[in-house]
């Protein structure tokens, strides 16, 4: 049969034969394209559980595959491969290797919550995207995304001082991700700001290194937060069987 919806099938799964004779009938040309037969055997049965153990993934089991999330998705509109409904399906089926094909774009969810707004089952797909992106990183399938680096730089600063000072966050983020601060568009932006702005005010707005704002008497809140985060991290490691892995590795190294 000719395949009309070729765009729905991954190109590597399509086989076209130049010359093909089946049961004595020449089916070359129009009738010679087939979909490769696939047998999926490497299910990760724990996949759904692992993702629901991470913050945001809690409600993945509610999904009934209506597709409203993908249909409303901001990122899907600019990249058709970005498909929350499909990924939720793969996770629930345990099809880890299929999911891994898209591992480098899942973190690109912009958290606009259009999906959460549209979802009839309160899955909170936005949360599932975050949980999945974190799962990929925690399991070592992807390096930390720039977005995770940004979250970490930001959170470290909030824990340390109670507040954010934007330019400091930006500088630290660029440093951590090895990017130059002097990108041409940034230079242009500052140039335009300078048109009407006294330099003193500009430095107060953007470069407030000297008067880094902080919340006073913050230290007990800071240590309480850090303690809680560490605790959660340990719990999640267990859920992802990472702690077991670490144990085994340590014993192995000791032996």
């Amino acid at each position: 049969m000719p395949i009309h919806e070729k765009s729905l099938i991954r190109p590597e799964n399509l086989k076209t034969h130049d010359k093909l004779v089946l049961d004595g009938i020449d089916v070359s040309g129009h009738w010679s394209t087939f979909i490769e037969t696939r047998v999926v055997s490497d299910y990760n049965e724990a996949l759904e559980e692992e993702i629901s153990a991470l913050p945001g993934g809690e409600y993945i089991h509610r999904c009934w595959q209506c597709g409203s999330c993908t249909n409303s998705c901001t990122v899907h509109a600019i990249n058709p491969d970005f498909n929350p409904r499909f990924w939720i399906y793969l996770i629930r089926m345990g099809m880890e290797s299929e999911l891994l094909r898209d591992k480098d774009i899942i973190w690109q969810c912009v958290s606009c919550n259009k999906c959460t707004y549209a979802c009839p089952r309160d899955v909170v797909p936005e949360g599932v995207m975050k949980a999945t992106a974190h799962w990929l990183e925690r399991k070592g399938h992807t390096p930390k995304s720039p977005s995770t680096h940004f979250d970490e730089v930001f959170t470290e600063q909030v824990i340390a001082t109670g507040k954010i000072e934007e330019s400091r966050t930006i500088r630290r983020f660029f440093k951590r991700t090895n990017q130059g601060l002097m990108q041409s568009w940034m230079v242009e932006m500052v140039k335009r700001m300078l048109r009407h702005l006294p330099i003193g005010l500009l430095s107060r707005m953007g470069l407030a290194t000297f008067i880094a704002p902080r919340t006073s008497n913050w230290s007990s809140a800071a240590s309480a937060i850090q303690e809680y985060i560490d605790e959660q991290h340990d719990k999640q490691d267990k859920a992802l069987s990472l702690s077991e892995l670490i144990d085994v590795a340590q014993k192995d190294a000791a032996a």
Partner: peptide, 11 residues
């Protein structure tokens, strides 16, 4: 903000 939520929503 969104950043701390991403690290841990309860924080």
């Amino acid at each position: 903000a969104m950043e701390v939520k991403n690290v841990d929503p309860k924080i």
